[in-house]
């Protein structure tokens, strides 16, 4: 019999995993919501964040420097990707964008192998966060607690920003009807580029934040894209709030499943996706209406 304490611990771990996922899908879902582009290279941008982190820390820069510089560098990569490969394809069938972003993912993987080699890389969490703390019976490293806090604040800030700020209103309108927004006098192609670059920055940030706890390898993008994709399907494609809630849901599901039926954890996540697709094809938070014709 599983005790109450174990359930509490599973809940905390699940929520913590969920926030990590939220950070990973935030950019992906923004891009899909606005641009209808399923960016299969999103995991690659995450990977680049981790590798830039490796290089910056190796070169003697501090972790904190890497936390600022690496995401910006990834943002520049994202910007170039959007301008040179995606922009010419807007308005075409989604298949083109899927193919081009998948192609980009492979290009990035091969480039990473060329530059950093095939073996796993490592960079250390900052020494000031080396200790550990206990929260409700779960031992966290201070670094982990920092990541949890940072991520929660960041995701919450994006959420609030989307709801409350002028930029948020512009993005909501663009998600709904980009052509109309353009006809109101806003250069939507710049909005797209900006959002894609910001999405890349978020992915890069996730790479630097999670890099110290994970294997930094040329193939690390794949599982991330797979899971992130499942989450945005569960949340309702392109629905930001849905994606965040779905991240926490998948995190909790993973936490409980890992406790109770560990062998079925992955199966359950994708089963959830399948059930959502069958019962609510537009996702838990998706709406079938409101898409521009």
């Amino acid at each position: 019999m599983v005790g109450f304490e174990a359930l509490v611990r599973a809940t905390i771990l699940g929520l913590q995993f969920g926030t990590t996922l939220a950070l990973l899908v935030a950019g992906l879902t923004l891009v899909f919501g606005l641009m209808d582009v399923i960016n299969l290279a999103h995991g690659s941008l995450y990977m680049l964040g981790a590798y830039f982190g490796v290089t910056l820390v190796d070169a003697g820069g501090s972790f904190w420097l890497a936390l600022v510089v690496a995401p910006v560098a990834v943002g520049v990569v994202g910007l170039l990707m959007e301008v040179f490969t995606l922009r010419p394809l807007y308005g075409r069938e989604p298949l083109y964008q899927i193919l081009v972003t998948l192609g980009l993912a492979f290009v990035v993987e091969e480039s990473v192998k060329e530059v950093w080699g095939t073996s796993a890389q490592n960079f250390a969490a900052p020494a000031v966060l080396a200790g550990s703390i206990d929260i409700a019976g779960v031992t966290y490293s201070q670094y982990q607690a920092f990541v949890l806090l940072f991520t929660t604040v960041l995701v919450a800030a994006i959420w609030v920003g989307l709801e409350r700020t002028n930029v948020g209103v512009l993005l909501q309108a663009t998600a709904h009807d980009p052509e109309m927004v353009d006809a109101l006098g806003f250069d939507v192609s710049r909005v797209f580029t900006g959002v894609f670059a910001v999405s890349a920055v978020l992915a890069g940030l996730a790479g630097v934040l999670l890099g110290p706890a994970r294997a930094v390898t040329p193939s690390m993008w794949f599982n991330v894209v797979l899971l992130a994709f499942a989450i945005i399907v569960i949340g309702g494609l392109g629905n930001f709030r849905g994606a965040i809630v779905a991240s926490l849901l998948v995190g909790l599901l993973t936490g409980y499943a890992a406790l109770l039926v560990p062998s079925y954890t992955e199966l359950l996540v994708f089963a959830l996706m399948a059930v959502v697709l069958l019962v609510r094809p537009a996702g838990i938070f998706g709406t079938a209406t409101g898409d521009p014709g």
Partner: peptide, 21 residues
């Protein structure tokens, strides 16, 4: 078909358009 932004408020619709000029 008007193509207003249904999830935004009336004020947000107007302010958004106003922000372009």
């Amino acid at each position: 078909d008007r193509r207003i932004f249904p999830s935004l408020t009336v004020a947000e619709n107007v302010e958004l358009a106003a922000a372009a000029g």
